[in-house]
Computed example of a mutant assay.
Amino acid sequence: MNSEQPSKWVCYYRCSTDEQGRSGLGVAGQRATVAGFLANKPGEVILELTEIESGRKANRPKLMEALEVCRKRKAHLVIAKLDRLARSVRIISTLMDSGVSFSACDMPLANRFVLHIYSAVAEEEARLISERTKSALLAAKNLGIDIGATGRVLAAKHKQQATERAEDYRKLVADLRSSGFATVRGLRDALNEREVASPGGGRWHIRNTFLLLRRLGLAA
């Protein structure tokens, strides 16, 4: 993240499983997003690296390699989406403190504060999905069900359900934003003043308000 137009780019992609890495699932979409982002920008792509690793694990040899190349060649790191980089505050903080300039195609204008909030929300979301999945798997096991690949199915289901719940708020959020409540804090306060319950049934805070905007594709 710097004001000078980069002349060298390093592209970093991440897949969460070996299966994705072998089949190319997820990587093709990331490549297309990055290509679109770079289409009208000068310079050249000097390196593309793909990591096959969980979004919450901190062991990222390919990311470390990308950062090292960026430092040596004075290149700019680019990723398709911030959540493809990591769902960990620690990893995002490491990147921001590395001295390497970088861009996330889905949040090109995000500042350090927004990136910290985003990573904290993503980390919390991953933790909650993991807890719900473990509880569901334990219940299935107690019923004698062969869980097999059920964990991945349940995790995807819980994520989809969360996205669907967020859609219930879309019109209200749009109305509030058009009325001037454009910031996360402003929206949080407006929702609480109107006594609108959060998806969890409680009050709105910075994290769940930002998460709502992210699920609606309105985070910036």
Rank of each mutant, 00 (worst) to 15 (best):
residue 32 A to D: 10
residue 191 L to K: 15
residue 65 E to H: 10
residue 181 F to T: 06
residue 157 K to I: 01
residue 30 Q to I: 03
residue 82 L to N: 11
residue 160 Q to A: 13
residue 79 I to Y: 02
residue 75 A to G: 07
residue 196 V to A: 07
residue 135 S to Q: 13
residue 85 L to I: 09
residue 211 L to R: 13
residue 68 E to M: 02
residue 201 G to A: 08
residue 190 A to P: 14
residue 161 Q to F: 02
residue 11 C to Q: 15
residue 23 S to G: 02
residue 64 M to R: 15
residue 41 K to V: 01
residue 139 A to K: 13
residue 73 R to E: 10
residue 61 P to V: 10
residue 81 K to W: 00
residue 176 L to S: 15
residue 63 L to W: 02
residue 136 A to P: 03
residue 120 A to F: 01
residue 215 R to V: 05
residue 127 R to P: 00
residue 161 Q to W: 11
residue 10 V to D: 08
residue 168 D to K: 12
residue 26 G to Q: 04
residue 97 D to T: 06
residue 213 L to F: 06
residue 4 E to P: 04
residue 192 N to H: 05
residue 51 E to I: 02
residue 211 L to N: 14
residue 149 A to D: 10
residue 180 G to A: 04
residue 82 L to S: 13
residue 101 S to I: 00
residue 185 R to T: 10
residue 195 E to F: 05
residue 185 R to M: 07
residue 204 W to Q: 11
residue 184 V to Y: 03
residue 11 C to E: 15
residue 176 L to Q: 11
residue 174 A to E: 14
residue 107 M to S: 09
residue 213 L to E: 05
residue 53 E to T: 08
residue 80 A to L: 01
residue 167 E to L: 13
residue 80 A to Q: 04
residue 148 G to Y: 03
residue 113 F to G: 06
residue 166 A to M: 05
residue 149 A to S: 15
residue 94 T to S: 12
residue 69 V to Q: 10
residue 47 L to A: 15
residue 29 G to D: 01
residue 132 R to H: 07
residue 119 S to V: 08
residue 67 L to Y: 03
residue 102 F to M: 08
residue 58 A to E: 04
residue 40 N to R: 14
residue 81 K to L: 01
residue 207 R to E: 08
residue 196 V to K: 10
residue 170 R to M: 02
residue 53 E to S: 08
residue 72 K to A: 06
residue 199 P to C: 06
residue 126 A to C: 06
residue 178 S to T: 14
residue 218 L to S: 05
residue 80 A to C: 04
residue 211 L to D: 15
residue 160 Q to L: 11
residue 212 L to F: 06
residue 81 K to S: 02
residue 153 V to K: 15
residue 150 T to K: 15
residue 114 V to R: 11
residue 7 S to N: 11
residue 179 S to F: 01
residue 54 S to V: 09
residue 126 A to N: 09
residue 102 F to T: 06
residue 121 V to P: 11
residue 173 V to A: 11
residue 40 N to C: 04
residue 81 K to G: 00
residue 61 P to F: 04
residue 109 L to C: 02
residue 188 R to E: 14
residue 170 R to Q: 08
residue 129 I to F: 01
residue 85 L to E: 07
residue 47 L to V: 06
residue 180 G to M: 07
residue 112 R to I: 08
residue 76 H to N: 05
residue 188 R to V: 00
residue 175 D to P: 04
residue 59 N to R: 07
residue 214 R to L: 09
residue 33 T to D: 10
residue 106 D to M: 13
residue 209 T to Q: 03
residue 159 K to R: 14
residue 24 G to Q: 09
residue 44 E to F: 00
residue 1 M to D: 07
residue 107 M to L: 15
residue 182 A to C: 12
residue 114 V to I: 14
residue 181 F to M: 13
residue 56 R to P: 02
residue 175 D to F: 11
residue 7 S to W: 00
residue 26 G to L: 10
residue 217 G to W: 01
residue 107 M to Y: 07
residue 31 R to Y: 00
residue 93 S to P: 01
residue 197 A to W: 02
residue 156 A to I: 08
